[in-house]
Design a protein around this nucleic acid. Structure first.
Lengths: 234, 234
DNA sequence: CGAGCTGTGTGGTCTGACCATAGTAGCGCA
DNA sequence: TGCGCTACTATGGTCAGACCACACAGCTCG
């Protein structure tokens, strides 16, 4: 198949960037040479260079900004969850990745993370981040969209306590992938106030189990929490 | 930040494709209008359209082929694992996602999958696919690169028995992300023959546990299997 | 010293030309 | 009528160049 085996002009740029990242020649925060310079360096057109840059953007490796000065150009970033989340969202949209499988995979990662958080060397600062989110969600005047955003951050913060960046990334990307479904579900609930009350109670109990380093309880509670929400929602 | 909030010309194409996928207006196997037609439809340049197409390619949603006839143009595909794998690989290369976390996440997904395969309604055809891979790996003349490829397919096939497409996708993408490390590790082993023997023995025991629907045993064996390989390798 | 202007380098977009590819249709010959 | 060959067409891939908007950084003037 021509597409899968043909070498494209910009592949050399992609490979070069990957190797440079691997070797440490370029690092997080570094600024790549400008598109025109890369075009000259690789002996290809600027349009082709732009294709490579676009690929790297979609993969969450770089961001681009116009202008001049240190914030302009193509900067190395680290946004794996937005990259994975965007791709997953497309495949959920195309019905190739079923929503129920995403939910189940979320349960897998969150229960794993909370179990492992029990023995992980998280700091007081980390757990306090989660606590602040928990407390922010206790505001009963919060619109559901804000609550949902805080809810997402809360879950990500708890899961991050396990200390596995890949698992956190996947968890976050899955939330991103089904973000619209979550928002729709929240907005569709008959009485948001009642639902929010239940969610808050769940969150508190989950938080307390995590803080107490009771991994088994935390995992069970988060499973029930997700089951409860999606049982109502989908 | 201009990059994250600015609307680009081709965003409309991306949104349109996503919505069309969601609504079913376009489906797996469908052929999108040509770049020139899309440019006219959206009132933007062909170069901008190409950026949207490129994004969709990186996300594993479409593939592009030159020529004419039914196989040419931009065809809707479903390659979530290559998209996720490619992105993960970049982030592993940039050292933002640690290899050890990928390995641990792999253990998480594979043990989960094998546990759940015990109660899943997989078919004889599915398990036979795995069996054929198992038997193919028993060929002692197999070069390590071929063995590694079959090994990967074997693990993916077993994990797919759980019936969760998202988990399978993630598993496959993680294998893809660290594929070069696996190949390097295999090539670096002192005596490949001895290692292959051990791997084969592990594979057989894992397969038998899965076939017998002993989820707990299968999960334990696959954990030990991965630990053993990476304990030696990294 | 501060404000405003100019210049420069950056990515974003557009236009148009050309190339390679993969069919498909039409024509000619056996 | 069937097969082979040629020409045409639509497609994505690449290139070159022009222009735009933006974000500084440096310089000049009050």
């Amino acid at each position: 198949m021509s597409e899968s085996t043909a070498t494209r002009a910009y592949d050399a740029v992609l490979r070069h960037v990957e190797e440079s990242l691997r070797s440490g020649a370029i690092k997080l925060g570094d600024r790549l040479p400008g598109e025109r310079a890369l075009a000259e360096q690789f002996g290809i057109s600027r349009a082709s260079v732009r294709h490579a840059i676009r690929s790297l953007e979609v993969m969450g490796v770089v961001r681009s900004a116009t202008g001049s000065g240190p914030n302009s150009g193509t900067i190395v970033v680290s946004n794996p969850s937005s990259a994975l989340g965007g791709a997953l969202r497309m495949h959920v949209a195309s019905h190739q990745l079923p929503l129920k499988d995403v939910v189940e995979a979320r349960i897998m990662t969150e229960t794993w993370a909370l179990e492992h958080a029990a023995a992980a060397p998280w700091t007081l600062e980390q757990i306090d981040d989660a606590r602040r989110l928990l407390e922010a969600m206790d505001d009963e005047g919060l619109p559901s969209e804000i609550f949902t955003l805080l809810d997402s951050q809360f879950h990500v913060a708890l899961s991050a306590l396990a200390g596995n960046v890949v698992v956190s990334t996947m968890m976050e990307s899955m939330r991103e992938a089904i973000r619209d479904y979550i928002s729709d579900a929240a907005a569709r609930q008959g009485s948001w106030e009642e639902v929010a009350q239940v969610l808050r109670a769940h969150h508190h109990r989950i938080f307390e189990a995590v803080e107490a380093r009771d991994g088994a309880l935390a995992a069970r509670l988060v499973r029930e929490h997700i089951d409860w929400f999606y049982g109502r929602a989908v």
